[in-house]
Amino acid sequence: MSKAAAVSHTHRDDEGSRIGMWLFLFTELILFGGMFIVYAVYRFKHFDEFRIAGAELDVFIGTLNTLILLTSSWTVVMSIAAIRRGKKILSMSLLSATIVLAFFFLVNKYFEWSHKIAHGIYPKSPELMKKPAGEILYFGLYYMMTGLHALHVIIGMIILGFMLVFIARNVINQDSFVKLEAGGLYWHLVDIIWIFLFPLFYLIH
């Protein structure tokens, strides 16, 4: 064990770990980039129908979720700032707050989706198939893109949950917090993608 510890000590290179994390974030951005291309193409093709369909979404709930996510990004940053000052309990509570906010985001998303589904708007539903092509595509993209984003919120919650355990076990501490930084970066990615999804689906009419 002591040898392994010595090896890991000599190999420690926070800068390198950060490079690795940023490279991973690039791939995530490009994954969503593919979806944004599809959105752009179809918005261009079915301009008016996208406008009409977009008006059907609830701007209030979208704004609320945006505020929730922005706040959760702030709590992650504060959590890193706290661990850098050695305040373990504060860091853990801020991180827990992030996870709770993420959970609220998902609850809102659940109500939003079930509201739409109750109105008969879901893939291949008879109600949706009566609408023109552009609106079908709009709601297809809506479910696909917000669904993929929600999946990332869940993954982010799991990652942050691990970080919480790491802080509790002092794996993440005042001297070594690159893991928490990486987890935080991932959470910001989830946030930033939402920042683009929100205007594209809710605000542009």
Partner: peptide, 28 residues
């Protein structure tokens, strides 16, 4: 990642039929 999302779209298309690649629903 681009092939990742593309293959995912085909899978979703097969499972739920959101119409992204189906001309009958406006897809291309």
């Amino acid at each position: 990642p681009v092939i990742g999302i593309t293959l995912l779209l085909v899978t979703i298309e097969r499972l739920f039929g959101i119409g992204i690649f189906d001309p009958a629903m406006g897809g291309d």
